[in-house]
Design a protein around this nucleic acid. Sequence first.
DNA 1: CGCTCATTTGACAGAAATCAAAAGCGGTGG
DNA 2: CCACCGCTTTTGATTTCTGTCAAATGAGCG
Lengths: 242, 242
Amino acid sequence: MSRTRVVDAGETILAEHGEASVVGNVIAGVMRMTKTLLDGRQQIVGLVYPGEFFGRPYSETTEFAYEAATDVEICVIDRRAFESVLARHPELEHALLLTTLSELAFARERSLLLGCQNTLERVASYLLVMLERRRQLLSGAALESHKLVAVSAISRRDLAGYLGTTIETISRHVHYLSRRGVIRIINASHFEVLDRDELLALSGLAQDDLKLFGAVRVVAMPFGRPVLTIINGAARSEDRVF
Amino acid sequence: MSRTRVVDAGETILAEHGEASVVGNVIAGVMRMTKTLLDGRQQIVGLVYPGEFFGRPYSETTEFAYEAATDVEICVIDRRAFESVLARHPELEHALLLTTLSELAFARERSLLLGCQNTLERVASYLLVMLERRRQLLSGAALESHKLVAVSAISRRDLAGYLGTTIETISRHVHYLSRRGVIRIINASHFEVLDRDELLALSGLAQDDLKLFGAVRVVAMPFGRPVLTIINGAARSEDRVF
DNA sequence: CGCTCATTTGACAGAAATCAAAAGCGGTGG
DNA sequence: CCACCGCTTTTGATTTCTGTCAAATGAGCG
């Protein structure tokens, strides 16, 4: 029922306001979800990481575009076929509900970021999230606590689009954090976090706000080759529903 | 299993990062969902209108506060009791999934508003949404097309919090729209839209973006007294699942 | 009628976008 | 191995938008 596709960076998988023909999940690489204003201004409303679900079930059309932010390997299935699988497997539909509820909480968390954090706070928040993501991917044992490296998988341009700012502003703030000794710049996409507490303070977020990033974000789907499944922050590999 | 409560404007129904003890739906009035930064800055991440569902199923804690933006009448049920109802009624869980998917699309639409629309565009977008909401509530026959009145149910302060701006900025833009003849100010919360096309142009949104506001937002829950149920823009009253 | 609170209007300041130029980085080919 | 080219990132100067502070006006209400 499903098939694997490799898509080059920049290619569109589903167009904005187009037919919601397929759903699927990302195997490798990162997808971006974008919305565009009439004059061309564009906002990245979400990023889809390996193991995560993408697409729009139960709708004929998409609300935003799904594009490859990096070269991606994805597994796709016809949307209607997927819906009929869900109808036959309530436990899978339940899993999708849990994922969607988490995504919703996450999307609303982003309202806080875009609505009332300044750009320095946004950069700090992003670094904290990248750090958290990395800590989850590496299992507890493999993670040396003194090597707190935040890795940004996407281009600076996409990062700016995601944080609702510009590449210039991000550059300035990253270097400001470096000068203050909060981070060490390894290269344009790798940052060693020297003072996580300070970064948290600079983000303006409450400790509890970061818990959100450890929630269920991945739902193992009944198709595709095994992907990393993350459930409540505990990483397990090689999970497969069917 | 459920009970009706009346809550005064300003009261908190569920606290941020508190126990997600109950879920429910709004019968009358408007609730706001808020998140607060450590220094007190606050963002309204969502509004809950009559007939709409609120609360956080399948989580022990809330990600944001639910407060009464106006005096509200709500119907509440213990969260765990609700979850067990869902477990026994897959069709209800399915309905909740559809609602959650729509809410998610809506939350992401708001990322566009907060991330790359200027404050005038946000005000224009809000007026268009209020107009759309009103057109849906009034059935086709009752709606005189030449009376395009956008009604804001919430205080100016809450509106500012929702649009990620200030009351002063909103005031300036509303009066600018009035001077340009795009709207007529009836009073602080009622605006007659004189030129909907111009408002749409000023919002920067594509026509299709507004369709989103006509999607399923209400799920009839198996408790509470009958509420107005809106399904795909068609208003029906007195619907009840049980 | 006067009180309180919300809204409007004005002046000003600060944050961040924009525009422009320089520097850095990576790949290619001589 | 090094020079060259194109692209991304960084840095600087300037402008614009919008938030902040403060005062005036208006609406609602006892």
